[in-house]
Amino acid sequence: MIQLVTAMLACGPWLCPSSDRDGAIALAREGRFAEALSAAEADRDPARRAEGLLYVRHHAGDLDGALRVAQEARRSGVGSAWLEEREAFIALTVRDAARTRTALSALDARADRGGTDIARAAEGYRTELAAIERTLAARDRGNSLAYAVVGGGALLLLAIFAGLALTGDRGRPSP
């Protein structure tokens, strides 16, 4: 189901009327990424431009670049459900929990205003995010435990060393 919803959301931009963005998407699908990027940048509508840029960057494998596009669009208030869904998806791909959380919050706000598909997608992503966060929390606990073991172990060894070395020999000397 998550894949279906993701696919529906992912194909969002080219369901809209023809634009530079749509041209960019077509070029990117042919693998002509540099031209696609130029075409996307030419779109005068900020939301469509961001959608086109993100699509091209994502399909060219520049995941960090695609995330930057989505982030800038959200910050400048030109975000769309599609951009936020893609941001959450790509952030999950690169295991960026903070960005995923931010994008999901934005999606939640849209879902509150209606949009079952968005809510479904957000739910699936939230499950994946929770798994990543559990792993990171376990790592942090492991780190704390490691510091404690190393610190405690060092103190214990020091105490044993001091006890053995500084208290002098006992018992009778060997014959």
């Binding site: 295991r95 798994a131 792993t135 990171l136 376990a138 790592r139 492991g142 780190n143 435990l145 490691a146 510091y147 073991v149 190393v150 172990g153």
Partner: peptide, 21 residues
């Protein structure tokens, strides 16, 4: 000290301190 599922950049100090512990 090192849970399953971490990537290299997430592991970071866990590799050094975990291996020492």
């Amino acid at each position: 000290f090192l849970p399953e599922g971490l990537t290299l950049e997430e592991a970071g100090p866990a590799l050094r301190w975990g291996s020492l512990a």
